[in-house]
């Protein structure tokens, strides 16, 4: 296969401006565990960066630092030139389990953020209605979370993240609990929305195929302590559709990233042994 030199970008970039800049970040927990050590990389505006790495290498910790939900021990994180806490209104966080409020109906779950931000009711309801249409949930607006399938719950969670019109999306294994078919479908929808909305995305997953399908770049973290092992451009043309998964290029890319990831894991095994 021919080497791709120029990496295609689906979203036009602003002049090399790192929307998310992580510089020399170390995170130690009070109990003494070092979750991250001297981690540096940037995410440019409009990039879709996936984080891969063995369990416990600090992927979730890193996302929380970017969201300002936790603070660094050393180093700096800037989001759109601001501290993560100040940049929160640009950011939406989507968690692994749908984290819906069981006492709220679907529409009231989706409207939660707007409600907390005291958006007036008519605006709120209209926005929620439109968003439910976007994710195909208008029929279940009045249902409670316990009446939904796992895939539908995740859709609600995504709709809730999107109503506040974020520029930056942080997703922590959002589709881990879904079956492969729903996961593939959700991936395609996410990509469609990404191209349309031109978000900057950081996406944590354990699935190499998912990371390759979605990302412009993949950051592979090594554990104990968490550090950057590889930063890889994804050599796969845009736009990407279901068909992309059947191509040789795709398989090749998945193979390449998998080998890098396995290197990181077996390195760990050697250390332990």
């Amino acid at each position: 296969m021919a080497e791709v030199t120029q990496v295609e970008r689906p979203v036009k970039l602003a002049a090399n401006f790192p929307e998310i800049a992580i510089e020399g970040v170390t995170k130690k927990f009070r109990e003494g565990a070092t979750a991250l050590e001297n981690v540096s990389f940037g995410v440019e505006k409009g990039e879709f960066v996936s984080l891969l790495g063995p369990s416990g290498c600090g992927k979730s910790t890193l996302l929380k630092l970017v969201a300002g939900l936790s603070s660094v021990t050393e180093g700096t994180v800037t989001v759109n030139g601001m501290t993560p806490k100040n940049a929160r209104e640009l950011v939406s966080f989507i968690f692994q389990d749908a984290t819906l409020l069981p006492w709220r109906t679907v529409e009231r779950n989706v409207g939660l953020g707007l409600e907390l931000e005291r958006v007036a009711r008519p605006t709120r309801e209209e926005t929620v209605r439109q968003m439910l249409k976007v994710v195909g949930l208008e029929k279940v607006a009045k249902r409670y979370p316990r009446q939904l399938s796992g895939g539908m719950k995740m859709r609600v969670s995504i709709a809730r993240a999107l109503v506040s019109r974020p520029r930056i999306l942080l997703l922590d294994e959002p589709f881990a609990a879904l079956d492969e078919m729903s996961r593939d479908r959700m991936n395609e929808e996410l990509l469609r929305l990404y191209l349309e909305q031109q978000w900057t995305v950081m996406f944590v997953t354990h699935s190499v195929a998912e990371a390759v399908f979605l990302s412009t770049r993949i950051v592979i973290l090594a554990p104990h302590p968490g550090r950057v092992a590889h930063v890889e451009e994804v050599r796969l043309p845009w736009p990407r559709t279901e068909e992309t998964r059947m191509t040789e290029e795709f398989e090749h890319e998945v193979g390449r990233i998998s080998r890098l990831l396995r290197g990181v894991k077996s390195g760990e095994a050697r250390e332990v042994a």
């Binding site: 929380k64 969201a67 939900l69 929160r88 209104e89 950011v91 939406s92 966080f93 968690f95 389990d97 984290t99 409020l101 939660l112 953020g113 907390l116 931000e117 506040s164």
Partner: peptide, 18 residues
């Protein structure tokens, strides 16, 4: 309450009262 739910509220700048 699950930590992520609290985080969700904090992301929307919820006050401690909220």
């Amino acid at each position: 309450v699950e930590e992520n739910l609290v985080h969700l509220f904090l992301m929307h700048k919820a006050t401690p009262m909220q």
